[in-house]
Design a protein around this nucleic acid. Sequence first.
RNA 1: GAACUAAGUUGGACGGUUGCGCCAUAUGUUGCCGAAAGGUAUUAUGGUGAGGAAAGUCCGUGCUUCACAGGGCAGGAUAACUGAUAACGUCAGCCGAGGGUGACCUUAGGGAAAGUGCAACAGAAAAUUACCGCAUAGCAUAGCUAUGUAAGGAUGAAAACGCGAGGUAAGAGCUCACGAUAUUCUAUGGUAACAUAGAGUAGGUGUAAACCCUAUCCGAAGCAACACCGUAGGAAAGGAUUUUUGUUUGCCCGACAAGUCUUAACUGCGUCCUUUCAGGUGGCACGCAUUUUGCGGAGCUUUACGGUGACGUAAAGCAAAGAUAGAUGACCGUCUUCAAUGACAGAACACGGCUUACAGACUUAGUUUACAA
RNA 2: GGCCCGUUGGUCAAGCGGCUAAGACGUAGCCCUCUCAAGGCUGAAUCAUGGGUUCGAUUCCCGUACGGGUCA
Length: 125
Amino acid sequence: MKHIAIGENHLYSKAYAKGSKFVGRYVIVYVLKDYRAKKLQSAHPLGLMVNRIGLTVSKKIGHAVVRNRVKRILREGLRTVEKEFSIKKGYLIVLVARPVCAGAKTQNITSDLQKAFKVLNLTEI
RNA sequence: GAACUAAGUUGGACGGUUGCGCCAUAUGUUGCCGAAAGGUAUUAUGGUGAGGAAAGUCCGUGCUUCACAGGGCAGGAUAACUGAUAACGUCAGCCGAGGGUGACCUUAGGGAAAGUGCAACAGAAAAUUACCGCAUAGCAUAGCUAUGUAAGGAUGAAAACGCGAGGUAAGAGCUCACGAUAUUCUAUGGUAACAUAGAGUAGGUGUAAACCCUAUCCGAAGCAACACCGUAGGAAAGGAUUUUUGUUUGCCCGACAAGUCUUAACUGCGUCCUUUCAGGUGGCACGCAUUUUGCGGAGCUUUACGGUGACGUAAAGCAAAGAUAGAUGACCGUCUUCAAUGACAGAACACGGCUUACAGACUUAGUUUACAA
RNA sequence: GGCCCGUUGGUCAAGCGGCUAAGACGUAGCCCUCUCAAGGCUGAAUCAUGGGUUCGAUUCCCGUACGGGUCA
């Protein structure tokens, strides 16, 4: 499953301001209903609802190599979580990495994300 | 064995499962997004996918746009000599100076006798100087004045070459011997800087990473450059206001008959104000032409030759990162290893250098010293 | 990615190569007062960092670190 990245800065600030939020040990997750989801669905070739994903990895966490690694790990964590549970579509999801992420492992982050999605009621039964 | 010096290499390998970017081929859809230009898709196969510094952005180039008759001023950069190079502030060799017992290392290393400035404090004086001194003469006497002098004292980072003899009223490179320095000429060696020897001359402090002078070089800005396409009037945030629809009583306020109302919050639309933001493609990944293949690119590797060396010439072979919220991941196994989970670290138009960061391992050449033989 | 600028007590900062480095606010101590305030006196600086030039560097030159600005 490919992810569409959030490009616009205002969407991030909207998510921070209005989205529901879960604070984990490694990641902070913001979720907001995507009012453009229908448009994106029609744009999608298979007509699927898609979540838009934003990754925030600030310069505090480390230099470029570390930041890239954190982004990859976050993506990998999302993938594994999506395999295990089917997640509701049509949302903006922003993942903010905390400074602990620099030395984190994939398992830590996946477990964090699982908790987050359960708490935020994004998992479909 | 110990302590070092210089130069260089490497920066894990293989396999499995599961994912990502780009390219090619086949398949597949004429749909969706957008004002338009334009963008985008499924699956399969194959190929390919981050470093020695990709970093800092300190130099030099290509490339692009603007400017440009020619010359000058201003401004900036560089500074022994000879070479290498597309070019350089880089590199090589070599000379001088300094450091180290040594291998070797460091060195912005033109001009202070073109001019200007500065040299705190101390000291008489910081560049045509005289406080104490040392002499001579006069006054007439605990000394003072004038002249000469710069050996000695004292100050300082720095005080007019060192030392001995002659010389003198006292002294002084004033003269001489020996020595040091600067500079000119000659000879020898070297392409040259320069070195060595001889002869002459000089004693005019330091500072040019102070202004400056001399010689040489430099038009300016940068891929967010620039070229082409498109030209709607957009997007977001905050505030105000009007009207209206719906949702929720979890929190807050009020009312009562206690589950309803009012209010509030959230949300959508319209209008006004303020602020912020601004489209796409190429450039851009080896290129061009093409049937093979050829040509081009300061491209890479190996070999041969030339050169002390930087490097050059020739031949053969190899060529494929090219993203744009930004691809190389994750999880395992085996092997080498003290250790690889664990060094520094992520291409963004490209190249040549410099600088800085760097775990561990390895190679080559060499020095000093101790012990043993 | 490119191009620029800065760094001086806790904060804002001045500083013509010659220091014991101005000043303001704050702060610590002391004095004054019955007490507080105001006032007075005193203290606290690796001049970001490593080299170089110079007799001497906060100042001049080079490198590094950190911070900031800017581009369409």
